[in-house]
Every structure is written in structure tokens, then in C-alpha cells.
């Protein structure tokens, strides 16, 4: 009970601050817009190997990649917590009896809400370009990227609390997220990749997310990729939340 109340309290505060500074939301929308406008046409041509590629099909492949990319950015949440550490806000929270896990979860849930907002917007914006997707399929896809955000943002917060400096955080994040991003088949499906690259990519959990989201956008919720994505993401998210909570509880004893 207290834990839920505390989580709600932290979440509310974070939402309030987010809405006050909508510049981040706007940046988060403009970026995928650039991709939709400037990159999607190029990709459509690249995918058009046998001359049968339609706009609808191209965006069903492209938009899922965008959603996973935006979700990947939630790993950068750690920068926010470093700023809060520096301002003394975290320490101020620590001297209260507030639940330590709530301090983490309230923040991560804010990130999930922000991501879902962006995901819905990117999807809607792609419709005039020719995207067609079922509502149920889209909702299930949003659940997948939502889980992914919970996983990555909580990990990002734990990382921020551990490293405690932007200078240490930036190289670590870039080094880790770049191969993950490339190996998730975000821009081009990995069907074009040589076998060894496919084998490596199989170890990237977010490649499975991309595949699952693509299957859903293609209107195949029964595809193996969908349950595989869920089966991989769910335990990983639980594990990440558990470990990050421990880091949180320990460093903010």
C-alpha cells in the first residue's frame, strides 16, 4: 500500500516536471519525424528488391524499427538521475521514509508513459504516409516497447547512480547501445545480413523485440516472433527491475 502510494507520488512529480518542460517530448517526436520523412523513402527503395514493395509494407517494416529505437533511448535516463543527485534531490528523498523502490519505479513509469506517447504519435504520423496497422496489433506492439523501456530506463537509473558522473556515463552508454542498436535490425531487417551477423544478433534481446513488433505491424499476431519477444522481454524486465532496485536501495540506503 505504502509502496504503491509512494510510487504514485514519485511518478506524479516526474510527470509534472516532464509536462513543464515539453521540449524533450518535442525533440523525441521531431527525431522520428526526420526518419519518417528523410530516411523512409530511401529505405523503401532499398527494400524494393523485387519491385513489389508498397508504401504500406515499407512503413510496416520501418515504423517498428523507429519504435524500438525510441525505446532504446530510454537507457539515457541515467543522465537525469545524475542531475538530480547533483541538485541534492535524491539525498533529500533519502532522508524521508519513502520507499526506495518507489523512487526508481515512479521514475521508470514516467519514462514508459513518455515512450508510449511518442510511440502512438509516430504510428499516427506514419498513417498519412501509407502505414496500415490493426489497433489490437498496435496495442500489443506498444506493450512490447513499453516493457523494453521499463527494462532499459531502470537499468539506466542504476547505471547513473553507480557512475555518478555524466563523463563516465556517456562513453559507457554509447559503447553499449550502439552495437545493440545496429544488431536489432532497426533500420534494415536482418534478413539481409550475412549468417554470422544473424547469429550474433540472436543474442541481442532487442532484435527479438524488433521482430515481434514487425510481425504485429504486419498483421500476424500469431507469428512465433511475437511470443518469443514477450518471453524474452518479460523475465529480463523483471530481472532488471529487481537488480536496479537493489542498486537504488543500496546506494540510497
Amino acid at each position: 500500500m505504502k509502496f504503491l502510494r509512494d510510487t504514485w507520488l514519485v511518478f506524479q512529480r516526474q510527470m509534472q516536471l516532464l509536462l513543464r518542460n515539453p521540449v524533450w517530448v518535442i525533440v523525441g517526436i521531431i527525431q522520428p519525424m526526420f526518419f519518417l520523412l528523410l530516411f523512409a523513402p530511401l529505405m523503401k527503395q532499398a527494400l524494393n528488391v523485387d519491385g513489389t514493395m508498397t508504401d504500406a509494407r515499407a512503413y510496416q517494416i520501418f515504423v517498428p524499427g523507429m519504435l524500438v529505437m525510441v525505446a532504446l533511448f530510454s537507457a539515457f535516463s541515467g543522465f537525469g538521475i545524475i542531475a538530480e543527485l547533483r541538485a541534492g534531490v535524491i539525498e533529500r528523498n533519502r532522508v524521508t521514509p519513502v520507499s526506495r523502490v518507489a523512487l526508481l519505479l515512479g521514475r521508470s513509469l514516467r519514462d514508459v508513459v513518455q515512450l508510449l506517447f511518442q510511440a502512438v504519435l509516430v504510428t499516427l504520423l506514419a498513417v498519412p504516409f501509407g502505414l496500415r496497422v490493426g489497433v489490437g496489433d498496435a496495442l500489443l506492439a506498444f506493450l512490447l516497447v513499453g516493457l523494453m523501456t521499463l527494462l532499459l530506463s531502470s537499468t539506466g537509473y542504476a547505471l547513473g547512480l553507480t557512475l555518478r558522473s555524466e563523463d563516465a556515463m556517456a562513453p559507457v552508454l554509447n559503447t553499449v547501445t550502439q552495437p545493440i542498436m545496429l544488431l536489432a535490425g532497426i533500420f534494415l531487417p536482418l534478413t539481409f545480413a550475412p549468417q554470422w551477423l544473424k547469429n550474433v544478433a540472436d543474442f541481442n534481446p532487442f532484435k527479438w523485440t524488433t521482430d515481434g513488433v514487425r510481425a504485429l505491424f504486419a498483421g500476424n499476431p500469431g507469428d512465433d516472433a511475437v511470443w518469443q519477444a514477450l518471453a524474452i522481454l518479460t523475465p529480463l524486465t523483471v530481472l532488471a527491475l529487481y537488480l536496479s532496485s537493489r542498486v537504488f536501495a543500496k546506494s540510497v540506503r
Binding site: 505504502k2 509512494d6 507520488l9 512529480r13 509534472q16 516536471l17 513543464r20 518542460n21 538530480e84 541538485a87 541534492g88 534531490v89 539525498e91 533529500r92 528523498n93 524521508t96 521514509p97 519513502v98
Partner: peptide
């Protein structure tokens, strides 16, 4: 009250106070 302060730039004084009180239940 920490040596380095504890307020967040984008919050108002009132919001900070209400939130902090609520963290005590």
C-alpha cells in the same frame, strides 16, 4: 538540510514543500 541545498530548478517552492511532506506519509 544538506550543505549543498536540495531544490530542483524547475519546481516551485510550494511544490517542493508539498511533495516533501507527502513523502513523510
Amino acid at each position: 538540510v544538506a550543505q549543498g541545498g536540495s531544490t530542483w530548478d524547475d519546481s516551485t517552492g510550494r511544490e517542493e514543500l508539498v511533495l516533501h511532506a507527502r513523502m513523510y506519509g
